[in-house]
């Protein structure tokens, strides 16, 4: 046998599986803030375009010290929590009905499709007439905004429950209620929780929009006032608070997912 070339087979697998890198997210935040602070301090970014992050932070501290933060934040959180929880509970109930009953499906599913794409903020004037200028109209805006995505998430979740599990339940003589409670609802839970994630963001967006149209207190009102006085540092402080609310809501839903879906 003549001597042959030996060559290692080159590795060409791997990749396509992003891993979690600790603190990378925080580092990106920090780098942006530092660059921004340096840019504004050096005069490269004029204060008119963007205030210094330190000024925005100062505005936030001022807001806390004046006691107004509690007022704004509590007004917003009450609306947010009331509107979102009413919206998702009604939405889950309707979604279950549409998922389980032929009449509800044929009667309501087209209505849901027709009402879902309407921007609920456009209906705010109507809600003001129906539910009053105070909390009612704002809560209603959030309620209707979160209702429809929840309905759709719930019934599509029910549609996707493994039919063979339902058949198994029937074959062991489980009652209808048991099949719904122990097989269909847990099976639809991942989709319902994914719906919660989306509806929580929608709720925050609608909260601010509703508060900008007419509210004395609330993060949206605070941002609007800051904007009309060109107090951009206060405006950014308000936006940071909203971002914080969003992060906390996402974290809370993440915890709920970890608890309800621990079997995955």
């Amino acid at each position: 046998m003549p001597p042959t070339d030996k060559k290692q087979v080159p590795f060409r697998g791997g990749g396509f599986a992003p891993k979690k890198v600790r603190f990378a997210g925080l580092a990106v935040f920090a780098v942006i803030l530092i660059l921004w602070e340096l840019g504004t301090r050096s005069g490269f970014i004029t204060p008119l375009v963007l205030p210094k992050p330190s000024e925005a932070f100062g505005a936030l501290v001022e807001l806390v010290r004046s006691g107004l933060l509690v007022k704004h934040l509590s007004a917003s959180l009450v609306r947010l929590i009331a509107g979102w929880s009413l919206g998702v509970s009604l939405g889950v109930a309707l979604g279950i009905a549409i998922g389980l009953f032929s009449l509800a499906r044929s009667g309501l599913a087209p209505l849901v499709s027709a009402l879902f794409p309407i921007p609920k903020i456009a209906l705010l004037p109507l809600f003001v007439i129906w539910f009053g200028i105070d909390e009612g109209s704002k809560i209603a805006t959030i309620l209707f905004g979160t209702l429809f995505p929840t309905v759709i998430a719930t019934y599509s979740g029910i549609d996707n429950v493994d039919r063979s599990l339902i058949r198994m339940g029937q074959s062991f003589g489980l009652s209808w209620a048991s099949i719904v409670r122990k097989i269909i609802l847990p099976g639809a839970m991942p989709a319902i929780l994914a719906g919660f994630r989306i509806s929580a963001s929608i709720a925050i967006i609608l909260l601010v929009a509703a508060e900008m149209i007419g509210a004395e207190y609330g993060i949206g009102a605070y941002i609007l006032m800051a904007g009309s006085l060109m107090q951009t540092d206060q405006l950014l402080a308000g936006v940071a608070i909203l971002s914080g609310i969003g992060l906390i809501a996402a974290w809370g839903i993440g915890r709920a997912e970890a608890w309800f879906l621990k079997w995955r």
Partner: peptide, 16 residues
């Protein structure tokens, strides 16, 4: 309790 009882090809166990 259940005179006619199935065993399924795909096991049909509740994952939760």
């Amino acid at each position: 309790l259940n005179p006619l009882t199935y065993i399924f090809q795909d096991f049909a166990l509740l994952p939760w």
